[in-house]
């Protein structure tokens, strides 16, 4: 029993070193590009889409630091930020990506080593989806 107990403690301790900080995503959809508290400007990348690869499910995003290829996974949440049109933000899909659109990318890993996106906000400034 003591072994089990120690095992649980060790497992919890190890997991803590690996898991990212959790931010609630339900309300995040309503936060416009660049305004996510504690994330925007710190752990996100904001720039324009320069390339889209449907087969690889990636987009290239050019921000002030250069260009990054971002991987979209089945876990990635895509949101359409329509706040500039004074419309409700909505869930989006890979098909909503267009070159030249401004996006904000939050990576799963804050160090951005694996380039997989946790969420991507796409700023929509014209037209109504």
């Amino acid at each position: 029993m003591l072994k089990l107990f120690k095992g649980v403690v060790v497992a919890i301790t190890l997991l803590w070193g690996l898991l990212p900080v959790y931010g609630q995503k339900a309300a995040e959809i309503f936060i416009p590009v660049g305004q996510s508290p504690g994330l925007s400007g710190k752990y996100t990348s904001i720039g324009k889409i320069t390339a889209i690869d449907v087969r690889e499910q990636t987009i290239a995003v050019a921000d002030s630091a250069g260009s990054d290829t971002v991987k979209i996974t089945e876990r990635t949440q895509i949101w359409l930020d329509k706040s500039k049109l004074k419309l409700t933000n909505q869930k989006g899909a890979f098909a909503d990506f267009r070159k030249e659109l401004l996006v904000e990318v939050k990576y799963e890993d804050n160090q951005r080593q694996d380039k997989r996106a946790a969420w991507i906000k796409v700023q929509i400034t014209e037209g109504v989806k």
């Binding site: 900080v21 609630q24 339900a26 309300a27 305004q35 508290p37 504690g38």
Partner: peptide, 15 residues
């Protein structure tokens, strides 16, 4: 998990 953004108390008000 009450806060958006970085999940902090600081971010809580936005949510």
């Amino acid at each position: 998990d009450g806060a958006p953004g970085d999940g902090s108390l600081r971010a809580f008000a936005s949510g």
